[in-house]
Amino acid sequence: MPPIPGSGLAKGLAVTLRTMTKKTVTEQYPDAQPELPPRTRGVIGLFEENCTVCMLCARECPDWCIYIDSHKETVPAATPGGRDRSRNVLDRFAIDFSLCMYCGICIEVCPFDALFWSPEFEYSETDIRDLTHERDKLREWMWTVPAPPALDPGAEEPKELAAARKTADKLAARQETARQEVAQATERHADEQARAAERPTRPMGDSKQQTDQPRTDHPRPDRNQPYPSPKPDRPEQEGRE
């Protein structure tokens, strides 16, 4: 059946009439900030402490817009007789957002959670060279990264949180044990002081009176009596030459 002449125009006018009766959704940016969804891909933030310079993000980036420089340094052994080990130290981490297509592959492949999405998008520049953000600028974006969503009620707790909670519980137990030991030592010291205060003390005059009194347990010899004669020597053996 051939189309009725003017049917397309009628459909278009119908869409226009339906749209005219609806409320407008235009947001007056920048006077009014838009409400962005929680997983908005605005800019990438770097958590430098987690970066191990594994280079996975730079190798997997399809635009080659991630630049990483590092050097190796020797770490002495932690125990006597142990072997020294070497580690990579990050010197430069930069992302050129003039080339980035916001695919998020670098964030997905990072095994140490060093890269995160931030919903911030107001970082336009008049010079294209300023769109290359160094690690200091990337670190500042971390303050705008939203908190992760809550887990489902039946989901398992992440291993990192379980390990951190276990370490915190051990530390709290040690602190509680140390606090109890200090409290017990303080209580024992207070008891000893209380017992020492309850002991009867000798008056100050008693010692002088006892010193002035003559001793009766060992009588002093009379000076008028002669001293006892010494014992005679043993007789010499007969036949001694």
Results as ranks from 00 to 15, higher is better:
residue 173 A to V: 05
residue 169 D to Q: 13
residue 198 E to M: 13
residue 172 A to F: 00
residue 191 D to L: 12
residue 164 A to L: 04
residue 179 R to S: 10
residue 174 R to N: 06
residue 192 E to N: 10
residue 195 R to V: 08
residue 201 T to E: 12
residue 170 K to E: 15
residue 191 D to P: 06
residue 159 K to N: 03
residue 179 R to Q: 12
residue 182 V to Q: 15
residue 172 A to I: 00
residue 202 R to N: 07
residue 179 R to P: 04
residue 175 Q to D: 14
residue 172 A to D: 06
residue 179 R to V: 08
residue 181 E to D: 13
residue 165 R to I: 02
residue 174 R to C: 03
residue 192 E to Q: 11
residue 198 E to L: 09
residue 165 R to C: 03
residue 197 A to W: 00
residue 162 A to T: 03
residue 190 A to R: 04
residue 184 Q to S: 07
residue 195 R to F: 08
residue 181 E to H: 11
residue 185 A to T: 06
residue 175 Q to K: 14
residue 177 T to Q: 14
residue 167 T to S: 14
residue 189 H to F: 14
residue 177 T to P: 06
residue 173 A to R: 09
residue 160 E to N: 04
residue 171 L to I: 05
residue 183 A to Y: 02
residue 165 R to N: 06
residue 183 A to S: 05
residue 181 E to T: 12
residue 175 Q to G: 12
residue 172 A to P: 00
residue 202 R to P: 05
residue 162 A to E: 02
residue 171 L to Q: 08
residue 182 V to T: 15
residue 160 E to P: 01
residue 189 H to M: 13
residue 199 R to H: 06
residue 197 A to M: 02
residue 169 D to E: 14
residue 159 K to D: 06
residue 176 E to Q: 04
residue 175 Q to E: 12
residue 199 R to T: 05
residue 170 K to D: 15
residue 185 A to Q: 13
residue 176 E to A: 11
residue 182 V to D: 15
residue 170 K to G: 14
residue 166 K to D: 05
residue 157 E to Y: 01
residue 190 A to Q: 03
residue 160 E to L: 07
residue 201 T to C: 04
residue 180 Q to R: 12
residue 157 E to F: 01
residue 180 Q to F: 14
residue 178 A to Y: 04
